[in-house]
Design a protein around this nucleic acid. Structure first.
Lengths: 162, 162
DNA sequence: GTAGTTGCAAAGCCTTTGCGATCGG
DNA sequence: CCGATCGCAAAGGCTTTGCAACTAC
């Protein structure tokens, strides 16, 4: 799972320029759901010269090629992840903004079935759960994969100024 | 979901000003998932003077009060719907952009269970299915699991393209 | 009367784009 | 070599906000 994104790019007939190679590598090494700004930051650690615009253009291109998938996860910024991975969904901790991934093959089947009953072929299933952990015991599998927080921030905020 | 939005506003201690009353009414009468611009348009049919900024401020406030829920549904503009309604999810036709609502109590249970296993209390479950109808045999039933079917017409549909 | 609201226009945030320079195949 | 890609800065689309006037309670 190292350079797979780059491989996919090549298979899709994309020119592998310097910046693109770096971004592909950053994507391949990410196990979370970085937004464009974060990708830019990570890419810049490998090559200072890569511009934000290029990161935007690249994720857009890779999304069009089906190599990446865009996620929203509550924040205003788009986040990306490789689409190859087997179906998984997102459980967002509303307090910390952390995102856990989980599989739910049973639920998936049910949904696919419902869609079929309506005459649809599903291309994409998005399931996002938002909740909080009752203060009690945490820890345990905290080890999953934490995400950059930032997802909410507008979930509670006061609304009217002055 | 008739004039209930206004009632909810009052219960939440919000001042019922003219603009707010109109927006509440528009929301109460909507059976689809309008974006802010569309809400503004509808509100303006009842009162020309209502500004876009006020619509933004109002939906934000109502979302904070838990009266409305924001949806993304693939487009870049936020869409809103009353949160009171019983849990339902969205099936988006990628060709037309139309959104069907459906219920999936079984899937819901499964998911709630998964969340519990991770120590979470769920506040919100989002399920969005994206797919297309193979031109072949459609028809059959347009009626969903008891929820109201909702054929929103004017839907600036598209999801993303290149 | 006072705190909460509103309109308007300006500002902000994220994303896209025009353009000339560069680079990959 | 030719078209794809890049960096930069300017432009766009959607949303928020500062401010002074106004209004519900």
């Amino acid at each position: 799972m190292d350079i797979s994104i780059e491989r996919l790019c090549i298979e899709n007939g994309l020119k592998m320029t310097g910046p693109r190679r770096v971004i592909a590598r950053v994507l391949s090494e990410s196990t979370d759901h970085p937004d464009v700004d974060e990708l830019h930051r990570r890419a810049n650690r490998l090559d200072q010269r890569i511009s934000l615009a290029t990161v935007y253009r690249t994720v857009r291109l890779l999304e069009a090629k089906g190599i990446l998938e865009r996620r929203d996860l509550g924040s205003r910024r788009a986040r990306y992840e490789p689409s190859g991975e087997k179906n998984h969904f997102h459980l967002v901790d509303q307090d910390s903004g952390k995102v856990l991934e989980f599989a739910a093959p049973d639920a998936e089947l049910l949904l696919r079935d419902i869609a079929r009953q309506h005459g649809f072929d599903l291309a994409l299933i998005k399931i996002e759960l938002f909740g909080r952990r009752p203060a009690a015991k945490m820890g345990a599998e905290e080890a999953m994969n934490g995400d950059r927080r930032d997802s909410q921030a507008r979930l509670h905020g006061e609304v009217q100024g002055t």
